[in-house]
Amino acid sequence: MATKLTPRELAKKEDRLAPGHRLCAGCGASIIVRQMLAAIDEPVVIANATGCLEVATTIYPYTAWRVPWIHNAFENAASTISGVEAAYRSLVRQGKIPEQDVKFIAFGGDGGTYDIGLQALSGAAERGHQFLYVCYDNGAYMNTGIQRSSATPYGANTTTSPAGKVIPGKRQFRKDLTAIMAAHGIPYVAQAAPSQWKDLMEKTRKAVNSGGPAFMNVLSSCNRGWRHPTDETVEITQLAVDTCFWPLYEVENGVWKLNYKPKEKLPVEEWLKRQGRFRHLFKPENRHMIDELQAEVDRRWERLLHLCGEA
């Protein structure tokens, strides 16, 4: 019997991520890892792309991981877990190791997933390895000091898309990676956020039991990069969901399903105004950028509603 997805039951299990790691106070990444790993009762083996999570959890000679874990490089978490999973299948088939219901999981940030690791992820998904790739998307290269990635929201001030006198922040809308992964036709693709922990956990279970490659894109607040107080992590994450900047949905065997529809779809500026990275957008001369971002959020939301049969 799988552990009931109630916090009280889950809290009885040992944390698979130990304390003593050196992620920043209030980091969204470790919240996501803890919630997702708590939802899985089976043994797990993890590959981690270079990034905050990898760096901060395994500063030699310490490791925060109580499960088998491998870091190889930045762009190859998906191909690394491919190798681990292929080894498992080979060794089990030959009777060299016992068969267990091992869940293979790769974690990568948006830099390691949307950008430098996209090819490896696409390849691994196409090959059909049984693994779950989790992108913890905090919308920039936070580990190296908040540089823009293709996941960075339009208008955001990062150290390589600075809000300057002529160019006010990032000039492109973010890549829709979740849809790109859905286009691979793999059994399970979902978008989630830790503020809605039960949805995240249920998706995690579906993903690791989908029988094939699965991808989850999980919004991860970075208070250093987003510029908000450390204790507002959960609230601001939920605002991204309630403004429909970050809709919660899943694509299961090609069927799109909306998992959460805000009672009242909030204007995106409710999310923007809580974060220092968007502060410059509230100057009168940049107001049009908020409108443009709102229009893009609306366009994507309508498209999603249509795909999910909700329109």
């Binding site: 130990a18 003593g20 490791t63």
Partner: peptide, 11 residues
């Protein structure tokens, strides 16, 4: 690192 979860020693 063979001592899984030894980060607890790091305060």
């Amino acid at each position: 690192i063979l001592d899984a979860g030894n980060s607890v020693e790091y305060l």
